[in-house]
Amino acid sequence: MALKLILQDATTLHEAYLERKAEYEALRAAERWSGAVLHAGTLLELAFKLAISKHLGVTNLPAIFQVHDLDLLYYCCGQYSRFKSDKLLQENFSIVHKRWSMALRYEGATKTQRDAEDFDQALFDSAHGVITFLSQYF
């Protein structure tokens, strides 16, 4: 039986990451906080998928990774033991995990600047941000 792969290869995923990152920054600059929070989670998902591609050494991920399940992506990214030993990294992931879901796309302007700043710190803090950390691996 042939293994089903995600259509987009790692290069395309990386381009998507850079495009979503530019949109994320534009949303923050425009003070569109709910959009920024939605994009923050999308960036985390893409960062995990890029790290998994690198970890597996493949250009196209298996279709089982075509999910929004952050637990699964977290476990498979190849850095699980690092998350276990770095409590600040783990803390940053844990506070984003439950507060973000794709369901946010159905919401109006429910997020504030403070929410957006919390997400930004958890993901992009220079020492322990989750995406800051993952970006070493893609």
């Binding site: 952050l70 998350f83 276990k84 783990q90 844990s94």
Partner: peptide, 21 residues
Amino acid sequence: LFRFLHAKVNGADEFIISSLN
């Protein structure tokens, strides 16, 4: 809460709190 749990629960290095709310 995250910091309290990690300080309080023995064997905190054996598990990951991946979601806390």
